[in-house]
Design a protein around this nucleic acid. Structure first.
Length: 584
DNA sequence: CGAATTTGACCAGCGC
DNA sequence: GCGCTGGTCAAATTCG
């Protein structure tokens, strides 16, 4: 888990701060033992590999210098005893016996250090338990919502009487919750429905009929759980394609118009990530193959076209380009949803892109009436051309419990968002390049991104543990609940299917990667389709940020401790990009 | 030698 | 219809 990683980092940091030298140890002894080459002299016989089995510290081989501290810990903290701990214990004692220093001093020093570690451990445990509790609560609420939706679907209504098979309807209601990233509005034809229903029935045949289990899917359009994949290995490819119909498969089922609409919608949904990065590409965990390069108009820097190669049939693509006005900014635009399990480090972008797709589709599928009701400032632009409808959240702030942990930079969303319901390229832009303005973080941070845009009440998202929970009381109309209860307010049924993207997944990797923002809970202040998907994007970004420990994924500014993140919902990536760092 | 990248050609969409 | 542009293909080239 992330916390384990944090703790590992903390341990390492603690050790590094102590210069890896236990108090009272002579330099000579320390150096000789730390090098690990003086086995004869000190009787040290432990290899770093022996220690690396430890669950907390398994991510990296411990350098010999870290072993000293570790050995001290072994005697006092059984929980840290690795496989082969007995030999370590022996080693520890051997090491001590060969030393000339007072054993009491050593023990005292070690105990002091262990006390710190234990204290941190307890704190983390309490946080974790709280998170788990919150998560279970959210899950419970979500299932309640699903049940309610089910009842609503089953309730007789004029519209539903027109439908021939109410049973099928009900079944579809469940299916909707499974079709991650697909809005119900997109499943228009009987062919599509049957396609999905076939998936459901086949899934049931494969012993995965439990709806709840089906709900716990990953973001990679995760309709196939790891369990499913196992069972599906024996099935024909055609059957798999039924379950996971890529656009090519759908061609055989749908009419041309629907096909075009489907492809156009899915193609248009994008997530654009701006990162300060010196590397030619942003390391996002996926494997990409470059298939083209082009000099785009208005930017002398070539734009690279990449395809995800984790799975041969994966439709996800990305474009990588340097910002023309700031060459240090790397612009990565993701498109599509992965149809395969993802590496942990790659799940973040998968969530973001999936959320972007969902949001764009929801915004395009929901009627303008709905938008007017829910977000008066979201003017439908069907008749006014692209990008005419915008909304600007004055602020979206997120606090992590990492506030208390100096290693975790405070995460703060300075969100200027705009959304266009009728545009050629609806794009969510995650701007990880701008610096935060903490001095004005109470909801009135002036947005340099869209200074002329009308502002909506600020949306403050708090990812804080209860131990130091703080919600922004300046936000408007904070809902009573978190998570699904929030999501359910005024959210059309189709939007609820987005939630599983953040929900529990059977894929342990995805679960690990997404768990934090999910379990921490999302306190949303506006329950709109926009915000729902927005949360997904936020969570994805959060996951990425925290999961990477504010390194790699983020640029230099992120590493330096503070960063701002702008989420924008607009039509033209280029336009969005220019808005952020270089307002026109 | 296979995989990955490069790069020019080609295609489709869009505006005029 | 034409030209521009973005996006993709695929042969050539490079790399490990």
């Amino acid at each position: 888990m992330l916390r384990a990683f944090e703790m590992s980092s903390l341990l390492n940091t603690t050790m590094e701060e102590k210069k890896m030298k236990p108090t009272g140890v002579k330099d000579d002894d320390f150096e000789s033992s730390s090098t690990g080459t003086d086995e004869e002299e000190h009787g040290v016989c432990v290899e770093p590999d022996q220690i690396s089995h430890n669950s907390l510290l398994s991510s990296e081989k411990l350098p010999a210098t870290k072993m000293v501290f570790y050995e001290q810990c072994v005697d006092q903290k059984p929980s840290l005893t690795p496989v082969g701990g007995s030999s370590l214990e022996k080693t520890s004692k051997t090491c001590y016996s060969s030393d000339h220093m007072s054993e009491d001093d050593r023990l005292e020093s070690a105990r002091a250090q262990m006390g710190l570690v234990r204290e941190e451990n307890q704190r983390l445990k309490s946080i974790l338990s709280k998170i788990v509790k919150d998560y279970q609560s959210l899950q419970h609420q979500f299932f309640e919502v699903v049940q309610e939706e089910k009842k609503v679907e089953m309730a007789p209504s004029p519209n539903k009487l027109l439908l021939p098979h109410s049973q099928e309807n009900n079944e579809e209601a469940e299916l909707l919750s499974l079709t991650l990233g697909l809005s119900s509005s997109r499943l228009k034809t009987d062919g599509e429905r049957k396609n999905i229903l076939t998936t459901q029935s086949e899934s049931a045949k494969n012993g995965n009929s439990d709806l709840k289990q089906e709900l716990s899917l990953g973001s990679y359009n995760g309709k196939i759980t790891s369990c499913d994949r196992e069972s599906l290995k024996d099935t024909k490819e055609g059957e798999i394609l039924k379950i996971w119909p890529p656009s090519k498969v759908l061609k055989t089922v749908r009419s041309d118009d629907e096909q075009v609409m489907e492809q156009t919608q899915s193609k248009r949904a994008r997530v654009c990530v701006r990162v300060r990065c010196d590397a030619p590409t942003m390391e996002d965990g996926c494997h990409w193959r470059k298939y083209g390069q082009k000099i785009a108009k208005g930017n002398p820097c070539p734009r690279g076209y990449y395809r995800c190669t984790v799975s041969p049939s994966c439709p996800v693509k990305k474009q990588v380009q340097r910002c023309a006005e700031d060459m240090s900014v790397l612009i990565t635009t993701y498109e599509g949803n992965h149809n395969h399990p993802l590496p942990i480090s790659a799940t973040a972008m998968a969530f973001a892109t999936s959320a972007a797709t969902s949001m764009v589709q929801s915004c395009s599928s929901t009627s303008s009436q709905q938008q007017q009701q829910q977000q008066p400032d979201l003017r439908p632009s069907a008749s006014s051309g692209p990008a005419s409808a915008t909304s600007t959240g004055g602020l979206n702030g997120i606090d992590f419990p990492g506030d208390r942990n100096p290693k975790l930079p405070r995460l703060y969303f300075s969100n200027s968002s705009s959304i266009s319901t009728c545009n050629s390229r609806p794009t969510i832009t995650l701007d990880l390049t701008s610096s935060p303005d903490f001095s004005n973080r109470d909801g009135h941070r002036s947005s340099s991104c869209f200074p002329s845009l009308p502002k909506l009440p600020s949306t403050f998202l708090s990812f804080s543990s209860s131990s130091s929970s703080h919600l922004d009381t300046t936000t408007h109309k904070s809902s009573s609940g978190i998570g699904p209860s929030v999501l359910n307010h005024g959210v059309p049924p189709q939007h609820q299917l987005y939630q599983p993207q953040l929900g529990p997944v059977t894929n342990s990797q995805a679960s690990r990667a997404q768990s934090l923002p999910d379990k921490l809970g999302i306190e949303a202040t506006k329950a709109t389709p926009l915000n729902l998907s927005f949360q997904s994007a936020l969570a994805a970004a959060m996951t990425s940020f925290v999961g990477d420990g504010a390194t790699g994924f983020l640029g230099d500014k992120g590493k330096e401790g503070g960063f701002g993140l702008n989420l924008k919902f607009g039509d033209d990536p280029a336009t969005q990009l220019n808005h952020s760092d270089h307002p026109r």
